[in-house]
Amino acid sequence: MDGLSGQKPIVVWLLNISVVLIVLLWLFPTLGLFVSSFRTGDQITASGWWSAMFPAEQTLQIRAADPDEFRVETSDGVFVVEGQIFGDEPFEGTIQAWSTSSRRLGENAPGDTYDMGDGESFTLNADGTYIWQGNDDQISGRAQRVFIDAETPPEFTLDNYNFVLFDEDNSEGMMKAFLNTLTVVIPATVIPILIAAFAAYALAWMDFPGRALLIAAVVGLLVVPLQLALIPLLSFHNSIGIGKGYLGVWLAHTGFGLPLAIYLLRNYMVGLPRDIIENAKVDGATDFQIFVKIILPLSFPALASFAIFQFLWTWNDLLVALVFLIDASGQTTVMTKQIVELLGTRGGDWEILATSAFVSIAVPLVVFFAMQRYLVRGLLAGSVK
């Protein structure tokens, strides 16, 4: 609604600005994970994801070749080690400066010869070739370290995804955790929808004693925190032999998701035209036929809306999985638990963490964007007449 002057009121502008800020706060971290998942660890350390398309300045620490294996003695008794500082792999960057000490970074230009004392010297050229020379005691033992200030071009790689998803030597098992998560999420989304659809139809269109009390109980269960039921429910699962397994976690997610599902679907079904149902009953259709052939097709927006919520909740769940599924063997570890373990075992491997995190949100993003057009329609159903 426009104001008296024909301009939008300040509340509308504040609402639009708030929506834009929320979208940006959600978009930037997601985009950062996506870009970082294709970068190397050195690039992530050297520069932020927003500069991934531009050359980055890095300080590389590289050792020269093993002097005991590659040194050569000249005719005047001087020992020399020559080679390519970057090894066999080609270096596509540009050497800007170098040093043999971490305390004096960038003190030498490419091509300079640095006098290390007592006749020992080191020369590093712009193309990465070097000459290290000195006496027998100096050119022996550990290889000389070189700190190189270099400008490296943008580089993107699929090695992170190959390691996370397909590397057989990856002891972290992200691919197995991905499959375990799908094993949990798909039944935990389908089962409550099936049960809630039948219950919602009964509460919306069938007359029976106690219906109002059941609707009130469903509304009351919406505000009950699931933490209250974790320990009693786990004890019950253990007593009947389904604790710490897929069946137990499916039933737990079903129980925790049913109140919202029944409430949402019942509100939608109540808003459907009564004439359609009454005409079907006049034609001799049973309640089951009306439910399957009329109610379910018309209720697809509400079903899709709850499916989005249930899928996202179960996919991102950690608490219920820890209580009802995760065991000591780690064979049923889900992705949320796997990422927590990666923070401990690979806390410095930012490229692996970024790739694992993006893999964990990729499927929910696909599901959300594929079904988001039904989300608002399903949530607003039954709110107005």
Rank of each mutant, 00 (worst) to 15 (best):
F358D: 02
I352G: 01
T333Q: 14
A354V: 01
F358N: 03
V323P: 05
T345C: 10
G330P: 12
I308A: 07
S356D: 00
N316E: 10
V359R: 04
Q338M: 15
F358C: 08
G344D: 14
A354Q: 02
F309T: 10
L365Y: 08
V334Y: 05
L343P: 04
T333V: 13
Q310P: 06
A304M: 15
G348V: 08
A304I: 12
G347V: 08
T355Q: 02
V367F: 11
M335K: 04
A321E: 13
F324Y: 14
N316R: 12
P301S: 03
F358H: 05
G347F: 13
L343M: 14
A362N: 09
V367W: 06
F311N: 00
M371F: 15
A357T: 05
L312S: 11
V340Q: 14
L319G: 01
S356G: 12
Q338H: 10
A328L: 11
V334M: 09
L342H: 04
V367D: 09
T332V: 05
I361N: 05
I361D: 04
E351P: 01
Q310K: 11
P364N: 07
D327T: 15
V320F: 04
S305Y: 06
T333P: 01
D349E: 13
I308W: 03
F369S: 06
Q310L: 10
F311C: 05
F309G: 08
I339C: 09
S305E: 07
F369D: 07
F311K: 01
V363K: 02
E341G: 12
M335S: 07
F324W: 10
I326T: 10
E351M: 04
V320H: 01
A357C: 08
A362H: 11
A321C: 07
I361K: 04
D327C: 09
L322M: 12
L353F: 04
V359I: 14
L312V: 15
Q310T: 10
T332R: 14
E341Q: 14
L365D: 00
F300K: 11
V334H: 04
A370G: 11
K337T: 14
I361Q: 06
G330M: 11
G344I: 13
I339G: 10
W313Y: 13
W313E: 08
L365I: 15
L325G: 06
V323L: 02
A354P: 02
V359E: 03
T336S: 15
W350V: 04
T336E: 10
L319F: 00
V363E: 02
L342V: 08
G347R: 06
M371K: 00
T355W: 01
G348A: 13
R346C: 03
T314S: 09
F300L: 14
S356C: 04
G348L: 15
L342G: 07
W315K: 01
G348K: 11
A302H: 06
S356V: 04
N316V: 04
F324P: 12
D327L: 10
A328S: 15
E351T: 07
A304S: 15
L342W: 03
F324N: 08
